[in-house]
Design a protein around this nucleic acid. Structure first.
Length: 161
DNA sequence: AATTAACCCAACCGCCGACCC
DNA sequence: CGGGTCGGCGGTTGGGTTAAT
């Protein structure tokens, strides 16, 4: 029997901001039914107001959980499957420039999420370290880990394209 | 055929910053 | 000006699956 906080676990959401109206928020894997409720709500109301999802649909999920689910799995145009060689190279380049700025990196990879990129990178990082290989290919020079030679770094991410 | 290690994916947690009241 | 809430980000953990020994 699996019971995801479906009992007395009131504090499930840990850093839950506000108190729910006595509703016990659920956690753990999402079900297809929950996905549909969330997807339908977003279709009607758009993204944002994630806490409103729980308030208006009665879905026993906190706003944070809804946002994450939507962003990583329900959002349309999500690219599924493995990263292409082109995407991999782009990720490496972006990481060399931005560091662990997964959200920014995801913005450069249409259909990909920060979580996916983060998972990919972490796995690759471990693998490369195990094999004693460099994180970046020789033709890529990371900018984010340069010593404090020039403090006035660029914060403006000129997103061309 | 069984056991162990590694890999990948999904989700949660806590923290931070922005925004609104 | 201060307090509170929400949204978002990055880090970390857990579970399941697959491959190798």
């Amino acid at each position: 029997m699996i019971m995801y906080g479906g009992g007395a676990g009131k504090d499930g959401g840990s850093t839950n901001h506000i108190s729910d109206g006595g509703v016990v928020l659920k956690k753990g894997p999402w079900t297809a039914a929950e996905d549909e409720i969330l997807a339908a709500y977003v279709r009607e109301n758009g993204e944002g107001n994630w806490n409103a999802v729980q308030k208006n649909t009665g879905l026993a999920r906190c706003g944070k959980s809804c946002r994450l689910r939507w962003a990583n799995h329900l959002r349309p145009n999500l690219k599924k499957g493995s990263f292409t060689g082109d995407e991999e190279r782009l990720i490496i380049q972006l990481h060399a420039q931005l560091g662990n700025k997964w959200a920014r990196m995801a913005a450069q990879l249409p259909g990909r999420t920060d979580n996916e990129i983060k998972n990919y990178w972490n796995t690759r990082l471990k693998r490369l370290q195990r094999q004693g290989l460099p994180l970046y290919p020789p033709d890529i020079i990371p900018n984010h880990q340069l010593p404090s030679t020039s403090t006035t770094s660029s914060t403006t991410t000129t997103t061309t394209t």
